[in-house]
Design a protein around this nucleic acid. Structure first.
Lengths: 209, 209
DNA sequence: ACCCTCTCTCTTACGGTGTAAGACAGCAGT
DNA sequence: ACTGCTGTCTTACACCGTAAGAGAGAGGGT
């Protein structure tokens, strides 16, 4: 028994039963142990949740080399992928600012790479902040409980909405599509004051007035 | 006594005591009434939370006329402003998809305006989705509990981070600044296939390679 | 052999939660 | 006067996080 085993079991329980199903007593039962025993390995439930967030987010991959827009996009997609693996964790992730050493190191690495691409330190963190908050917001909407459709009201006199739904809005592929579109849009809106290493402002969604 | 009074009292209690302080019993006490009485006006606690989200979000203003990027930005800022008025509501907003008739009407209005600016119905909803999920994600990070600074680890060997903090990262003005920057970036990344009504792709952050 | 200390698990208990079930008061209509 | 509706209350249940401390077992020192 160890903090690691507790966290693993907690994550599994969370995935299986949802956020409401994760209680200290059930978690104890899962490990064949009484609830209070867990408190030997973990100070309280909040610490378990923090640990879960840390655990999941530590699996995010980032490889800051080459065109910064390219690896930033990969970074965004990696966050989204890890989060979508554990939808019930989303509300937890949403509230908890991650300040673990690992996360800080990751941010530092990305920021350093961005400064190498011509950004100011502050600008670099702006970019990182914009991307990560966007990803969390978007994934939150994606993974949350699907909106309770009231099928009469929906399309009645909302022609544009109706049109979009008919075009496939709301399907899983659509989610992915609009995520990628939005990330591309967001990244295309940032640029270092003094661009280095080749790759000038890649066109991607047909802008360039 | 009415659903409205219950919701008002709930919002006030939430603002005053935080999310953990909003319980049916305390809410009852606030209204000079026993907890169970509330269940005459509201089916359950989740409905109260839904009502709160609806209430706060219904105050968001949107005026879709003129340059779409301009009113979209105002829309984003309006969402942020209303959310920041009730920080304790943020975790609640984050989870609950809003599908009330009012919200739908708002979305429809914005989408219609965007199609008038040359967007496809689906594209229009992509833009709206991108902006609103971004605003929620960003405001969540902003309003959440500030990260527990461990002052030794922070700047020790993270030079870029240290540099950014020295430049004012993390201050309230910085929050606003990076919000506006990111929204501008995001919006500048979208464009209708067939732009109409004058205003071509406004420059705002010095891109234009 | 003894005892001591440390590690780990347990039991018990407290004050809180959301809410189901139903009793009861007051008032309206017939 | 009786009926039925509206609004409030009481009681109760199952669950939660966790504080406090008891007790089992192992290991080492004397």
């Amino acid at each position: 028994m160890s903090r690691e085993r507790v966290l693993e079991a907690a994550l599994e329980l969370l995935d299986r039963e949802g956020a409401a199903g994760l209680s200290m007593r059930k978690l104890g039962k899962e490990l064949g142990v009484e609830a209070m025993t867990l408190y030997y390995y973990v100070p309280n439930k909040d610490a378990v949740l923090d640990g879960l967030v840390e655990l999941v987010l530590s699996r995010v991959r980032i490889e800051p080399s080459g065109d910064w827009r390219v690896w930033m996009r990969a970074f965004a997609e990696s966050i989204r992928a890890e989060l979508l693996r554990h939808p019930a964790l989303m509300p937890v992730v949403a509230i908890r600012p991650v300040a673990t050493p690992g996360a800080l190191a990751m941010v530092e690495g990305a920021a350093a790479a961005l400064t190498r691409a011509g950004f100011t330190a502050k600008e670099a963190l702006h970019v990182i902040n914009a991307v990560s908050t966007f990803v969390i917001g978007h994934t939150l909407a994606e993974a949350g409980p699907d909106s309770p459709r009231q099928p009469d009201l929906d399309l009645a006199d909302h022609p544009v909405l109706a049109r979009a739904v008919a075009d496939g809005l709301g399907t899983p592929e659509d989610h992915r599509e609009r995520f990628e579109l939005a990330v591309a849009a967001l990244l295309s809106g940032f640029a270092p004051r003094t661009p280095e290493e080749g790759t000038p402002a890649r066109t991607r969604t047909g802008r360039r007035s």
